[in-house]
Design a binder for these strands. Structure first.
Lengths: 108, 108
DNA sequence: ACGCTCGTACGATACATGTCGTACTACGAA
DNA sequence: TTCGTAGTACGACATGTATCGTACGAGCGT
């Protein structure tokens, strides 16, 4: 009745649009690795597997960062075979925090 | 040659405009208490003493939050008698991260 | 001179977070 | 069926952070 170990969640939890909290989004975006992920997603690579990012961290750390972004409501993830695809929730973010994402992406 | 204890810094360190980093600003704004401070500052109370905020934390914690905001470049602080006044660095933030502050303030 | 108030510094503490390695699963291909 | 690859879960660890209380300093008023 219980899975012992390392069974990946088939149901990925995503907050609803109106559950997205400003603090969580800001917190999620305040990490350089996650900012890099978001920038790459915005740079036209709309649907990317995690592996495609070539991040300077281990696989487990990478998983961690993607989860933080997903649980904050910044990205949406879905399975595609053995890969997990990610895409920015631009519309939801724009609806809840107009201008925030583009300001973050535009900075620097 | 050294001050033993609790000598307040006469020189408050503020980052220059071009030293303000996006990650630090986002991190500074991702705390509810600090967000509240920033909102109040934006709400017209341009120059406020720390005490005037009536925050739900102790004095020392309050000091901590103001320092985080100052060192991230979000506010500027200066002494006025025994009080320390704070003001938003709106121009600097706008120059470095156009639209960010208003997006944060507008959200919710 | 004396006390009052605003704020700091410091130490302690509890909790959150970023990081990793290892063991594992799920899926697709040979 | 067997293997390789993408990604997860878990435990461990170090570091960062939010919080507090206490002791103190700097100005102002009396």
């Amino acid at each position: 009745m219980s899975r012992n170990k390392a069974v990946p969640e088939r149901r990925l939890h995503h907050p609803d649009r109106d559950e997205i909290r400003l603090e969580s989004v800001l917190s999620a975006l305040s990490d350089p690795i996650r900012l890099r992920i978001v920038r790459e997603l915005a740079r036209g690579h709309d649907d990317m597997a995690c592996i495609a990012f070539d991040l300077p961290v281990s696989k487990s750390t990478s998983t961690h960062h993607f989860r933080v972004l997903r649980e904050a409501g910044v990205i949406r993830q879905y399975y595609e075979g053995t890969s997990r695809m990610s895409r920015l929730r631009e519309d939801d973010l724009e609806a809840r925090m107009p201008g925030l994402l583009s300001a973050v992406l535009g900075a620097e």
